[in-house]
Lab assay of single mutants.
Amino acid sequence: ELELEEVDLYRMNSQDKLGLTVCYRTDDEDDIGIYISEIDPNSIAAKDGRIREGDRIIQINGIEVQNREEAVALLTSEENKNFSLLIARP
Results as ranks from 00 to 15, higher is better:
34 I>V: 12
64 E>S: 04
83 F>M: 04
81 K>V: 07
59 Q>K: 15
44 I>C: 12
60 I>T: 01
86 L>F: 05
58 I>Y: 11
41 P>H: 12
84 S>M: 05
14 S>K: 14
31 D>Q: 08
77 S>W: 03
80 N>D: 09
37 S>R: 09
63 I>D: 09
72 V>K: 09
39 I>H: 00
38 E>V: 08
63 I>W: 05
21 T>I: 07
1 E>N: 15
27 D>R: 13
22 V>A: 04
46 A>G: 10
24 Y>W: 07
84 S>K: 13
55 D>K: 00
18 L>C: 02
7 V>I: 11
47 K>E: 14
84 S>T: 07
7 V>T: 02
1 E>D: 15
33 G>M: 15
23 C>S: 10
28 D>N: 11
4 L>K: 10
17 K>A: 12
39 I>W: 00
65 V>Q: 05
59 Q>T: 12
7 V>A: 02
57 I>D: 00
50 R>T: 07
23 C>G: 12
48 D>M: 02
45 A>Q: 01
86 L>E: 08
70 E>G: 07
47 K>R: 10
79 E>T: 10
38 E>I: 11
2 L>W: 03
30 D>T: 09
34 I>H: 10
23 C>Y: 08
18 L>A: 04
37 S>A: 13
12 M>H: 13
5 E>M: 14
61 N>H: 02
14 S>W: 04
45 A>P: 02
53 E>W: 07
42 N>C: 09
90 P>F: 02
52 R>L: 12
28 D>W: 05
26 T>F: 09
86 L>T: 14
14 S>N: 11
57 I>Y: 00
2 L>C: 07
44 I>R: 03
51 I>P: 07
30 D>W: 03
22 V>H: 02
29 E>H: 13
24 Y>F: 07
51 I>N: 00
62 G>M: 03
62 G>I: 00
74 L>G: 05
2 L>K: 15
57 I>L: 08
9 L>F: 09
21 T>M: 06
64 E>N: 04
61 N>C: 06
48 D>I: 03
24 Y>P: 08
51 I>E: 00
49 G>N: 09
2 L>M: 15
61 N>R: 02
56 R>P: 00
24 Y>Q: 13
27 D>P: 04
48 D>Q: 04
26 T>R: 12
75 L>R: 01
9 L>P: 00
49 G>Q: 05
39 I>S: 01
7 V>N: 00
42 N>K: 11
7 V>E: 00
47 K>M: 13
32 I>P: 03
19 G>P: 01
57 I>K: 00
31 D>S: 15
76 T>C: 09
25 R>Q: 06
57 I>P: 01
33 G>A: 09
50 R>I: 02
50 R>S: 08
69 E>T: 09
47 K>T: 09
12 M>S: 13
25 R>L: 11
49 G>E: 05
25 R>S: 07
71 A>T: 12
17 K>E: 06
30 D>Q: 14
46 A>Q: 13
11 R>T: 03
8 D>E: 06
55 D>I: 01
70 E>Q: 14
73 A>H: 06
78 E>I: 09
15 Q>A: 08
62 G>D: 13
79 E>I: 10
19 G>D: 01
55 D>Q: 06
73 A>T: 09
27 D>G: 15
48 D>P: 02
73 A>K: 14
72 V>S: 11
40 D>L: 15
84 S>Y: 05
35 Y>S: 12
66 Q>I: 13
78 E>S: 13
58 I>K: 15
46 A>S: 14
48 D>N: 11
14 S>C: 11
50 R>W: 01
53 E>C: 06
71 A>I: 03
27 D>F: 06
79 E>V: 06
58 I>C: 08
36 I>H: 00
84 S>D: 08
40 D>A: 11
72 V>G: 08
23 C>A: 08
11 R>A: 14
87 I>C: 13
17 K>Q: 13
49 G>P: 14
44 I>P: 07
53 E>M: 05
14 S>R: 13
11 R>V: 04
16 D>Y: 06
42 N>E: 12
81 K>I: 13
63 I>C: 08
82 N>P: 04
46 A>D: 06
17 K>I: 10
11 R>Y: 15
18 L>Y: 03
39 I>V: 13
17 K>W: 12
39 I>Q: 01
89 R>L: 01
56 R>H: 05
